[in-house]
Write a protein that binds this DNA or RNA. Structure first.
Length: 139
DNA sequence: GCCAACGTTGGC
DNA sequence: GCCAACGTTGGC
């Protein structure tokens, strides 16, 4: 199983909206970047991802699960774009901010920290575990 | 609101 | 196939 990170501006589609979709999940539409799309194509059902709020909050707020593998994006007029479906699993015990991630040497190589604008990123298992740990110990 | 970083487009 | 122009993202 692999780990990922999905960025979303809460103004456009927030964690709360994602949660409200329940087990049905939500098609992760709108990605028009090859790298991000390729990351989605590499996803398998059951893979987990962090849900990151960009612009407002700038923090990882929850965990999502891939429930459908990549298929044509219904909002795209070009067949080269496709996307997965994700559902909310659970909120983080406490959000992990970009600031906290940047300050943590363990996360220095994380795509998010390296100021990548990539909207769908891979997360290393060590990074995944470490962020979960921060989320718990930040209390 | 600014702007740096970066991806994409299109003319040549 | 190069590269300038342009658009977008997202932190600050």
């Amino acid at each position: 199983m692999a780990f990922w990170l999905f960025k979303s501006e809460p103004d456009a589609w927030s964690w709360d909206q994602q949660v409200a979709r329940g087990a049905t999940g939500e098609e992760w539409t709108g990605v028009r970047n090859y790298q991000a799309r390729n990351n989605m194509r590499a996803m398998r059902i059951g893979d987990l991802g962090f849900y990151y709020h960009s612009n407002i909050g700038k923090e990882i707020v929850g965990i999502v699960e891939v429930i459908r593998e990549s298929a044509p994006d219904s909002t795209a007029d070009d067949p080269r774009w496709d996307c997965v479906v994700i559902r909310a699993r659970q909120p983080l015990v406490r959000p992990v901010t970009l600031e906290a991630a940047k300050a943590d040497p363990m996360l220095a190589d994380m795509a998010l920290v390296r100021s990548s604008r990539l909207s769908v990123q891979p997360v290393q298992p060590k990074e995944w575990a470490h962020i979960l740990k921060i989320s718990l110990t930040a209390l």
